[in-house]
């Protein structure tokens, strides 16, 4: 039998699916395979779709992909849902909305639970993107629930970030100002068939016009109203997506983003290795004992950290 990398590169869906499993489970073989795949990646446009739970992301992605399929793109989708902190399990339900894409062999959908990855979710998603990219999927769309953490993850992975917001969902525009404004390349007011869409769009546009950083950038963040229900605004959105990609290329931003992302990826890999070492060398009882000592003021956090660093081979900083 041919090896998994060869099969993946030839477009074997099962090889890709198994590769994603290796990545998700942080198995040691994965890195060697990914190292090979890296040379074959770098072709795909990577799109992040984020927004509050229920904002209409999965339905929107489905509509977008249907449009992209008309243009004969082979599309990869990564749909991330949260892992239950209580059981460690998850219900991954994004496929329910993507039903009309199911069965199309040129659309590869993978549901991922956020889990408690050592290297953070961004490491796993980026590795999955790398595998899909090498397998010839372009574009690759990542759907994540818009929590503070996911925003960081999507910034570290995507080239074009779509922030979706539904009218009348209690998405307070003022509250959104903080984190999400910086990460959006395109704003989508979803469910525009519902009342309040025009107002949400107007408020967003207003907010954007007030942002001083934005006025310096050559890219004008568009605010696009879409209705997946009535199939409106989807082709405008696809056009905006293509335009943003062209902007990234012309301005050289695409390279700068990639460099930033690779920098954080390599840093992450090192942190992950440190975390693994720590996990392997210091057992839970020892942790408990150390923490008790620090609690009782017999020791302090700094000297404990310092001695553990020495134990796992990091030089003492004292």
């Amino acid at each position: 039998m041919k090896n998994i990398v060869e099969r993946l590169l030839q477009g074997d869906r099962r090889a890709l699916a198994r590769m994603v499993t290796l990545i998700e489970n942080e198995l040691p073989q994965a890195h060697a395979f990914l190292a090979e795949l890296h040379q074959h990646s770098g072709q795909a446009q990577i799109i992040g779709v984020t927004g509050s739970p229920g904002a209409g992301k999965s339905t929107l992605v489905t509509r977008m992909v249907r449009e992209l399929r008309k243009q004969d793109h082979k599309v990869g989708i990564i749909a991330v849902d949260p892992t239950s902190p209580f059981s460690g399990g998850a219900i991954l339900g994004d496929r329910i909305r993507m039903m009309e894409l199911a069965g199309d062999p040129n659309v590869f959908i993978r549901s991922m639970a956020s889990r408690g990855h050592l290297g953070g979710l961004s490491t796993a998603t980026r590795d999955v993107v790398r595998a899909m990219d090498a397998a010839g999927y372009n574009p690759i769309i990542i759907e994540t629930v818009g929590t503070g953490q996911a925003e960081v993850e999507i910034m570290r992975t995507a080239q074009t970030v779509l922030v979706t917001m539904a009218p009348g969902m209690g998405d307070d525009i003022q509250a959104i100002k903080a984190g999400i404004l910086e990460i959006a390349d395109i704003f989508v007011v979803s469910k525009a068939d519902k009342p309040g869409a025009d107002q949400t769009a107007a408020e967003l546009t207003m907010l954007l016009s007030l942002d001083p950083n934005r006025r310096q950038s050559a890219w004008r963040i568009p605010v696009i109203k879409t209705s997946s229900l009535k199939e409106q605004g989807i082709s405008e959105l696809i056009t905006a997506m293509h335009k943003h990609y062209a902007y990234l290329k012309e301005s050289g931003q695409i390279t700068r983003r990639a460099q930033r992302q690779l920098h954080s990826e390599i840093q992450n890999l090192i942190m992950q290795a440190v975390a693994k070492k720590l996990q392997a060398q210091i057992d839970p009882e020892e942790w408990d004992a150390l923490i008790a000592e620090v609690t009782d003021r017999k020791r302090d956090p700094y000297s404990v950290a310092d001695s553990l660093q020495t134990r796992i081979g990091l030089n003492s900083s004292l």
Partner: peptide, 17 residues
């Protein structure tokens, strides 16, 4: 899910394909 598994739920009306 409560038993710690990851459950992909497809919804109703699924064809064999």
């Amino acid at each position: 899910r409560d038993a710690g598994m990851e459950v992909i739920y497809t919804g109703i009306r699924q064809t064999p394909e």
